[in-house]
C-alpha cells in the first residue's frame, strides 16, 4: 500500500515539469502576441487613461517576468485566479464545462474501443483474407477522415435526412438545466434522480458526438490490435494451449487478446491526447458546451487567466489518464510492480 502511494506521488511530481513547460509557453505566447484583454473588452476607441487604469487594475502594466512570478505564486496555492473579462473565478466556468468534455471523451473512448478491438481481433484471425483487407481498408480510410467532417456527415445523415438523433447540445430545450447540478455528468445526474425520460434524452444527444469521435479514432486501434494479435497468435504459449485442447475461442480471447492488450493499453495513454483534440472539434460541430468551446470563446476575448487555466486542466487531464493507464497496466501484467 505504501509502495503504491509512493508511486502515485512520484507520478504526480513527474507531471509538474510538463505543466510548467506548457504553462510557460502559453503564458509567454499570450503576452508577446498582439492584442490584450483590455482592448478586447473596451474596444479600440476608449480613452488612453481608461485603458491604462484598467491595465494597472489587472496587473498588466508590470513587466512580463513579474506577472509570471505572480501567477506561479498564485498557482502554488492551487488558485487559478480571476477572469480578466468577467467577474468570476477561473475555476467556475471550468468546473461547469469539464464534466461535458469528460462525458464526451469517455463515451467516445467506449465507441473507439468497442469498434477497434473486435475488428482488429477479427482481422488478425482472418489474416490475408477478404475480411482482413476489408477491415484494414476501413481502418485506413477512417484514419484519414477529419473528425469534424465525420461529425457533419453523421449530422446530415442521422440528423437531417433521417431525423433520428438531435444534432446540437447536451439536452433537449424542454429539460431544465437545474436538474443537472449534482455532478454535471448528465448521464449520472439523471440516473441518480431516476429520471429515465431525461436519461433517454441525454443519451440520444450523446450518440452522434460519441460516434463521431469514436469512429474516427477506431482506425488506430484496429491497426494496433491487429498487429499485436498477429504477434501474440504466433507465440509459443498460444500453440501450447491449443495442444492442450483449449477451445479456439478461449485461446483467442483469454490468452491472446489479454496479452495483446498490454501494448494497446500503453498506446491508449498516447492516443488519449488525440481523443481530446478530436473532442474540441466535436464540441464545435455539435455545439457541445465543453472545455474546447470555453477555450475558443476565451481566446478571442484574450482572457489570459481563463485560457491558462483551461490549458492547465487539459494537461492535468492527460496526466491523470496516463496515471490510470499505468495502474491498469499493473493490474493486467503480473510482471509490473508499481
Amino acid at each position: 500500500m505504501r509502495r503504491i502511494l509512493n508511486y502515485f506521488l512520484m507520478r504526480v511530481l513527474l507531471t509538474i515539469p510538463m505543466l510548467f513547460v506548457l504553462l510557460t509557453l502559453v503564458f509567454v505566447v499570450l503576452r508577446v502576441m498582439p492584442g490584450d484583454p483590455v482592448s478586447a473588452m473596451l474596444g479600440g476607441h476608449a480613452p488612453e487613461y481608461v485603458i491604462q487604469q484598467k491595465k494597472a487594475e489587472l496587473g498588466l502594466n508590470k513587466p512580463i517576468f513579474e506577472q509570471y512570478i505572480d501567477y506561479l505564486g498564485q498557482l502554488a496555492h492551487g488558485d487559478l485566479g480571476n477572469s480578466m473579462i468577467f467577474v468570476e473565478r477561473v475555476s467556475h466556468p471550468i468546473a461547469q464545462r469539464l464534466p461535458a468534455t469528460i462525458e464526451l471523451t469517455l463515451f467516445g473512448l467506449i465507441v473507439t474501443l468497442g469498434i477497434g478491438i473486435p475488428l482488429g481481433v477479427r482481422a488478425s484471425r482472418k489474416r490475408r483474407t477478404a475480411q482482413d483487407f476489408g477491415i484494414r481498408f476501413y481502418a485506413n480510410i477512417v484514419y484519414c477522415i477529419p473528425v469534424f467532417w465525420m461529425g457533419l456527415i453523421l449530422q446530415m445523415v442521422f440528423g437531417v435526412l433521417l431525423p433520428i438523433f438531435p444534432i446540437a447540445g447536451r439536452v433537449g430545450a424542454r429539460i431544465i438545466s437545474s436538474d443537472f447540478d449534482r455532478t454535471g455528468f448528465y448521464v449520472l445526474d439523471t440516473l441518480m434522480k431516476g429520471n429515465f425520460a431525461d436519461l433517454g434524452d441525454v443519451l440520444m444527444h450523446l450518440v452522434l458526438p460519441a460516434f463521431t469521435l469514436g469512429i474516427t479514432l477506431s482506425g488506430v486501434f484496429v491497426r494496433l490490435t491487429r498487429a499485436n494479435m498477429l504477434d501474440v497468435l504466433k507465440s509459443d504459449y498460444v500453440l501450447a494451449s491449443r495442444a492442450r485442447g483449449v477451445p479456439e475461442r478461449r485461446v483467442v480471447y483469454k490468452h491472446a487478446l489479454k496479452n495483446a492488450l498490454i501494448p494497446i493499453v500503453t498506446m491508449l495513454g498516447l492516443q488519449f491526447s488525440a481523443l481530446l483534440a478530436g473532442a474540441i472539434l466535436t464540441e464545435t460541430t455539435f455545439s457541445w458546451p465543453g472545455m474546447g468551446r470555453l477555450l475558443l470563446e476565451r481566446i478571442y476575448l484574450r482572457d489570459y487567466p481563463t485560457v491558462q487555466g483551461v490549458i492547465i486542466v487539459y494537461a492535468l487531464f492527460v496526466s491523470v489518464v496516463s496515471l490510470i493507464v499505468d495502474i491498469v497496466y499493473a493490474i493486467i501484467d503480473p510482471r509490473v510492480q508499481l
Partner: peptide, 17 residues
C-alpha cells in the same frame, strides 16, 4: 511535454494569438 499534450489545442492557442 509538448508531445504528450493534445497538439490541436496548442495549435489553436498559437493560431488565435
Amino acid at each position: 511535454s509538448i508531445y504528450s499534450f493534445p497538439g490541436l489545442i496548442l495549435a489553436i492557442a498559437f493560431a488565435a494569438m
